[in-house]
C-alpha cells in the first residue's frame, strides 16, 4: 500500500454528524481512522480500520495529558488531523450561563488549539500532512442568538488562517471547511433546526466530500477555506 492507503486520519467528534460522515468517507478511501470522541461507548462506525479514544474536549486541563497518551499509541504516519468536534449553545446572551460560554469556547476552539499543538511536531517531522478544521457559516457573520457560538467559530477561523502561515514551510497544509445548516444531531438539543426539505440543509456527506477534496488536492495547493450552504436557507422552530 502507498502512504495514502495506510496512513491515519485523526478526526475529533467522529461518532456523530459531520464527523461520522467524514470517518466513513475516509474509511471508504482506504485510510485508517482514529476518532477522538466524547463518548467512546457510542461507536456507529464499526470498521476494522477504525478505532476511537475517549477525550473530554470541553476540559482543556485534562486534554493535553490525554492527547499525549493517545499520541504515544500512534505508530503509522498521520495523513491528516481533522478538528471537527463542536457543540452549540444558542440563545440571547443573557440566557447563556458562564458554563455555557466556557463549554462552547473550550470545545469549539481551545480544544482544537491544544490538540493541534500536540500533533504539530509530528506533522512537521513528517514533512507533510493536513490540518483541517470544521468551521461554520457562523465563522463568517454573527447572527442573533449565536453570540458565543459565532465567537468560537470566528476564533477557529482566525486560528486556522494564522496557522496556515506558520505551517507552509513545513509542507503542512491548513484548511477550513465552513458548513451551513447541516442535517445532523447537532440540532437535537437546540430550539430550532433546518427546514425539512432536501435543499434546506446540507448533508454531512457533502462536508465529508469536501474533506476528501482538500486532502487530495495537489500537494503544492491548499484549499484554504471552503463554504457550503443549502440551496434554500430555511430555519424552523421546534
Amino acid at each position: 500500500m502507498n502512504i495514502a492507503e495506510k496512513s491515519l486520519i485523526v478526526i475529533s467528534g467522529s461518532n456523530s454528524g459531520i464527523g461520522l460522515a467524514m470517518a466513513r468517507e475516509m474509511l471508504d478511501r482506504r485510510h485508517a481512522v482514529l476518532g477522538l470522541v466524547q463518548d467512546a461507548k457510542r461507536d456507529p462506525v464499526q470498521h476494522p480500520d477504525y478505532r476511537q479514544e475517549q477525550v473530554d474536549m470541553s476540559d482543556p486541563d485534562s486534554l493535553q495529558t490525554r492527547i499525549m497518551e493517545i499520541l504515544r499509541g500512534i505508530d503509522v504516519p498521520v495523513r491528516a488531523l481533522v478538528n471537527n468536534a463542536g457543540v452549540g449553545r444558542m440563545g440571547f446572551l443573557e440566557q447563556l450561563s458562564v458554563s455555557d460560554l466556557q463549554v462552547v469556547m473550550n470545545t469549539n476552539f481551545l480544544s482544537h488549539a491544544i490538540v493541534t499543538r500536540a500533533f504539530l511536531p509530528l506533522l512537521k517531522r513528517q514533512g507533510y500532512g493536513d490540518i483541517v478544521f470544521t468551521g461554520s457559516e457562523s465563522a463568517l457573520s454573527g447572527t442573533r442568538q449565536g453570540s458565543v457560538y459565532c465567537a468560537s467559530k470566528f476564533a477557529i477561523r482566525g486560528f486556522a488562517q494564522a496557522l496556515r502561515e506558520e505551517c507552509g514551510k513545513a509542507n503542512v497544509r491548513v484548511s477550513l471547511i465552513n458548513p451551513g445548516a447541516a442535517r445532523t444531531p447537532f440540532f437535537d438539543d437546540l430550539h430550532f433546526e433546518p427546514g425539512e426539505g432536501a435543499d434546506e440543509a446540507i448533508a454531512p456527506e457533502d462536508v465529508a466530500a469536501v474533506l476528501a477534496m482538500a486532502l487530495e488536492a495537489r500537494p503544492g495547493t491548499v484549499l484554504d477555506e471552503i463554504n457550503l450552504s443549502p440551496l434554500h436557507k430555511v430555519w424552523r422552530r421546534k
Binding site: 499525549m68 500512534i74 500536540a118
Partner: peptide, 14 residues
C-alpha cells in the same frame, strides 16, 4: 510545552 520522553521517542521526534 512538554512532549514527554515516551511520546517523543514513540513519534521519533528530535
Amino acid at each position: 510545552f512538554v512532549i514527554p520522553r515516551p511520546v517523543a521517542e514513540s513519534l521519533r521526534l528530535a
